[in-house]
Design a protein around this nucleic acid. Sequence first.
DNA 1: TTAATTTGTTAGTCATGGCTAACTTTTTTA
DNA 2: TAAAAAAGTTAGCCATGACTAACAAATTAA
Lengths: 228, 228
Amino acid sequence: MTNKLNLNNLTKSEEDYLKAIFQLLIEDDSVKVGNNQLADYLKVSPASTNNMIKKLKTKGYVVSEKYGKLDLTEEGKSIAVRLIRKHRLWETFLCNYLNFTWDEVHDVAEQLEHIKSRKLIDELDRFMDFPKKDPHGEMIPNANGDYSIIPKIMLSSLSEGDVCQLVAVNDGSVHFLKYVSEIGLALSSEIKILEVREFDKSIRIKFDNIIETVTRKFADNVFVKKVV
Amino acid sequence: MTNKLNLNNLTKSEEDYLKAIFQLLIEDDSVKVGNNQLADYLKVSPASTNNMIKKLKTKGYVVSEKYGKLDLTEEGKSIAVRLIRKHRLWETFLCNYLNFTWDEVHDVAEQLEHIKSRKLIDELDRFMDFPKKDPHGEMIPNANGDYSIIPKIMLSSLSEGDVCQLVAVNDGSVHFLKYVSEIGLALSSEIKILEVREFDKSIRIKFDNIIETVTRKFADNVFVKKVV
DNA sequence: TTAATTTGTTAGTCATGGCTAACTTTTTTA
DNA sequence: TAAAAAAGTTAGCCATGACTAACAAATTAA
Ligand SMILES: [Mn+2]
Ligand SMILES: [Mn+2]
Ligand SMILES: [Mn+2]
Ligand SMILES: [Mn+2]
């Protein structure tokens, strides 16, 4: 039982790397995560990621062979999930209590997730009465670190005639989130696929009697639950 | 009007240095702040402070002559006050909404004060309905950066027979704060000085029908308003 | 008013986490 | 299957913010 009560002596950078690897791993669990891919995601050079990966390997959070793909140890995953829990709880707090809109919360949560205090985050959770979803529809891991992977269906994967309900959106881009709100889409909106254009994969959708055409890129960032 | 809307591109370290200088300046406004004193306060070497002071001088936040004492520019003061505002608002939030005790809040606030978001702190202020004092009795600067310097009277400066009311305590030491609570003292407690012992400057005090002897060091960290 | 002490400065070192440029290995494509 | 492309690695550089050791200036005591 080497459950050495994780002193969490990690730097902000180390934390961001672990979270990034975790996000890339769950984003598409069939495809393994590569060094360049991670560099691209974090907007740093491959040399930087290579360097940090070495450190995280000696610390026991990452596993990989030379020239091989990256994976996280249980300890590494556990740290990543705790970061995601903090990130999403803070986003929820900002939206529900401090008048932030859903496109404003991500950058601030990116800072707040690094505050080190177990009590802080558990009390924040209690204060909000243990919310289950963040403002973008993503699940919030509980204090035990349970991360339930709900397979994400992209809007772009549906076909003509399908009806679905919006369950979550990618929270990384302010422009995207503003765009989603502006056209009138919101969590739980029921969306019908009217047409998928072969030429550029753009999709004609209908929701609340609004008809819109969205690009493939847009539809890749909208996650849904199929209804029909 | 070179009011260049302060981009606040400061590192955590730079912020901590500016806040420290400000604290030392207001702690005793007659005595100027020296390099070694700052090093001592921040628990770093004089070489480190010397180095950082150089940077803060070129950035226009600190003024000093070679081998001379330190002072802050208006811009430097303004940054320090905003940090103190953030620190105290977070301490208040932790105490009043997240079940923290007054000895638990300082270390977490020391991290939270560096979160960069104007909206976050102003909304937090509004959410708590613009509190005027933090859990240790210190005033909270408002959004305009007004810092009202209320001269602090140390309990140790009073004489036998004096009666006073506890208005604030030094928030830096967990041990001290726990001690204060444990003997039964709280903000607003009315304290009577029964005796000041010449030998070791220890003081015999009475409050709520409790009689206690406290050391000079203790009394230096308790701030009061004279009643009689 | 000299000498001792304190205070402040400088030089050089280290760890962290970025970078570019050059190289090696692996994978893909022709 | 050989050449080209992509992915991964290494070496060497930089900025930040710590440190120690040595030194200079200012202050205090003798
Ligand atoms: Mn987010
Ligand atoms: Mn982050
Ligand atoms: Mn404090
Ligand atoms: Mn701080």
